[in-house]
Amino acid sequence: MKLLTKEQREKLLKNGAASAARLAEPDNEGETYDFHPVVKLFCPWGGGTWLLTELDPEEPDIVFGLCDLGVGCPDMGTVRLSELEAVRGPAGLRIERDRFFKATKSLSAYASEASQRGCIVA
């Protein structure tokens, strides 16, 4: 299974372009948009979870979102899709896309909740 569908990739790129444009505004003080996650990825053999909102339009292998490696300290940041695609677990398992995930709140709301609980709940 591909980590991103064509539609998800397009939405992530659109969000990334909007954030890049906003950051380029002269009066902006580093604020970007607080998008709803577009996709949820997870590690089927462990606690890793990623809620992704944007792809970097300049380097579309870099994705931004809430990242949780399952060790109790979820954080917002970037990760390379190629690195997630290269991960292999027991019996060759791979990182997967949650086909049933529907975001119900903004990324910052998920991050706030994850900070309190020590893990992403989505």
Rank of each mutant, 00 (worst) to 15 (best):
A24C: 07
A24F: 05
A24M: 09
A24T: 05
A24K: 10
E25D: 09
E25C: 08
E25W: 04
E25N: 09
E25K: 06
P26Y: 10
P26D: 15
D27R: 13
N28F: 05
E29G: 14
E29K: 15
E29L: 12
E31N: 07
E31I: 05
E31Y: 06
T32R: 08
T32I: 05
Y33D: 08
Y33G: 09
Y33Q: 11
Y33E: 10
D34F: 07
F35M: 07
F35P: 09
F35G: 12
H36M: 12
H36C: 08
H36N: 12
P37K: 13
P37N: 12
V38A: 13
V38H: 02
V39C: 11
K40I: 09
L41K: 02
L41V: 04
L41C: 11
F42S: 10
F42A: 00
C43N: 15
C43R: 06
C43P: 11
C43D: 15
P44E: 03
P44Y: 04
P44W: 06
P44C: 08
W45G: 05
W45E: 02
G46S: 14
G47T: 09
G48R: 10
T49S: 10
T49I: 06
L51V: 14
L52I: 06
T53C: 05
T53A: 00
E54M: 08
E54N: 12
L55G: 03
L55M: 10
L55C: 08
P57F: 14
P57R: 14
E58W: 07
E59F: 06
E59H: 04
E59R: 07
E59P: 02
E59I: 10
P60L: 01
P60S: 07
D61K: 12
D61F: 05
D61L: 04
I62Q: 11
I62L: 09
I62E: 08
I62S: 11
V63C: 03
V63Y: 01
V63D: 14
V63A: 09
F64M: 07
G65N: 02
G65C: 02
G65A: 01
L66D: 00
C67W: 07
C67R: 04
C67F: 02
D68W: 01
D68P: 02
D68I: 04
D68Q: 00
L69D: 15
V71Q: 15
V71T: 15
V71K: 12
G72D: 14
G72W: 15
G72M: 06
C73T: 13
P74W: 12
P74L: 06
P74N: 11
P74S: 10
D75N: 12
D75E: 14
M76V: 05
M76S: 12
G77E: 02
G77V: 10
T78L: 13
V79L: 10
V79N: 07
V79K: 06
R80D: 14
L81E: 14
L81D: 10
S82Y: 15
S82F: 02
S82P: 15
L84Q: 02
L84C: 12
L84V: 00
E85M: 12
A86Y: 00
A86G: 00
A86F: 00
V87S: 00
V87Y: 15
V87W: 13
P90F: 03
A91N: 08
G92I: 01
G92V: 02
G92D: 00
L93T: 05
L93G: 12
L93K: 13
R94Q: 00
R94G: 01
